[in-house]
Amino acid sequence: MATQAQTASTSPRSASKRIRQGGFFSQTLPFWLLLPMLLVIAAIQFYPGFYSIWLSFQERQGAVWNFVGLRNFERIFGSAAFRESIGHTAVFLVGYVVVTMAASLVIALLLNRKLKLSGVYISLIFIPWVIADVIAGLVFGLLVVPDYGLLSPILSNPALFPPNGLSIPSDPAPRPWISGFPFPPAPAMYYLILATAWRALPFVTLLILAALKTVPHEIIESARIDGASSFQALRFITLPLILPTLVVALFNLILGGMNGIGLVFTLTRGGPGTATEVLSFLLYTIGFGRLEFGRAAALSVFIAIINLTLIILTLRVSRTEERTA
């Protein structure tokens, strides 16, 4: 009796108590419950992860793989395509993150004003999030087909886009301001940023809206009574309070943007030329277009390191402690 009372006091969970009382199966029950998940994750996440690292040190000659040390990394990092692609990815990510965050913040602030129709607005805004990236790419692509696309009369208007109007699928990038860095980008890049932001916007809006709902109304009101303008209240009270969410949203956006490929696939295919060849598409081109698996694996290890860094930063910022309780 005494031991049981002790058990109960150290671990008040009745289920845990039962573990200790039962036979082998029920003693190890959590393990059996977790086993299916662990097996799948080991086979689909961990094994391929290590396989990729192994592949990145190999090169295929005929049917056999040869260990080549860091040669794949040297060749990928030394290639002009990689350097160029880093530039495209940087331009893409900055544009996409700024557009998405700014638009989401504005929409979330509007929705937070307790409108009668908020539910309708949120449902409609969320539709792009459910639409596949491949379909979004096709839809945006159809709009700008030269001559026939529904946006083409606007884009080809020389008054709006001097001197000759704009053709998104084919216009090359203007001369870069700094040689070697693709800025200003080609029109296709702006368009790719818009299309990607269109799909990412709903989720970020929902995140920010959820955070805004936790900001106590009283603080804002008392600041307003003390003479703060609504912009000052936003800048000095609301934004600092929702900063963790904004940072998590930022990391999420970068992670999604780095690894998204469906939209590039159907909207620009990296073109015109290589103007929208971001890292994810370069990975595809090297691995499956040119079948240079070793070098593509080296690139995927590089992207995976960035991903892991972003994930660890996200875990730091979001309150994991609380959530694993």
Partner: peptide, 26 residues
């Protein structure tokens, strides 16, 4: 338990892209 949960949470963020080559080989 805690370590496993954090690991699961971390995996949530891992995109398919970087595993594609290995999955293709598999």
């Amino acid at each position: 338990r805690r370590a496993l949960m954090v690991a699961i949470l971390a995996i949530t963020g891992i995109p398919l892209l970087t595993n594609l080559l290995a999955l293709y080989q598999m």
